[in-house]
Design a protein around this nucleic acid. Sequence first.
DNA 1: CAAAAAATGTAGCTATAGTTACAAATTAAA
DNA 2: TTTAATTTGTAACTATAGCTACATTTTTTG
Lengths: 143, 143
Amino acid sequence: MPRSTRKPAATPPAEKFRRSRRDRAAETAQDYVEAIADLSAALGEARVVDLARRLGVTHVTVNRTLARLKKIGFVNTLPYRAIFLTDAGRTLAAECKLRHETVTAFLRSLGVPEKVAELDAEGIEHHVSPETLVAFEKKLKRR
Amino acid sequence: MPRSTRKPAATPPAEKFRRSRRDRAAETAQDYVEAIADLSAALGEARVVDLARRLGVTHVTVNRTLARLKKIGFVNTLPYRAIFLTDAGRTLAAECKLRHETVTAFLRSLGVPEKVAELDAEGIEHHVSPETLVAFEKKLKRR
DNA sequence: CAAAAAATGTAGCTATAGTTACAAATTAAA
DNA sequence: TTTAATTTGTAACTATAGCTACATTTTTTG
């Protein structure tokens, strides 16, 4: 088809894709701080090996990601020492945990099997806006 | 804390993180085939510039991603020509479109504003398992 | 306390996805 | 039909996130 014959492209819904992509960078950070918070609560401290096991990656990947998180200001690390969250990291972890639990509970309330709800929530939670989260919460209360 | 004193790490929930990550590779593919299908329907053909506009990236990124999709067998391309979906690509696009619409409709049914539902769906849809999708559909019917 | 084991760190590779800058081809217009 | 505009392609860079292989440090154990 000759280009001149074509209708002009519709208004591009590019923004939503941009957001979706932008989110990706933050997802890893969220998974990490949440894991660090959990491990700290459960074991008293979070270590590279534990994180690696939990996240299903090698300790090398954990190491490099921690370097990034440190740069962004979410964690404090010292060579060969345990990993600690900064205040910002703790705040983020708490937010994530709450959201994660809400999403999981909501899915379960729809009849989604426990295990599947857990799996899906892990992916979904990162894309749930505050508005949608509130909608989930409302729905959960009204039962 | 000495390492020996620590409780052994709990059973690692690594699988869900692995899946969440694995999904990422497929997300882009899905966004692209969906966009190509839409543009083909609306304009008669999908072109690099249109895709770039729609997805909010440069034409260079589109180009490289198309090369990957071609290798995987979702699209056919010829230099300086429009982009076409293979049968596999069309099938994937149809699946994605259906799922996207279900997710969007479901969010709207919860009272999430149209615009937000659109935005959230774009991220969420990629993480909705068949089971959860069925749960969404059921909920939609029962109103 | 010395040796072995475990944990952590570093070097260097891959893949994906984004970018700008520039080149080549196609389409549209003068 | 030649020129200008648009589109497409390529080169070369960045960032994130995964990996294996190997080095170093710390911890445990004999």
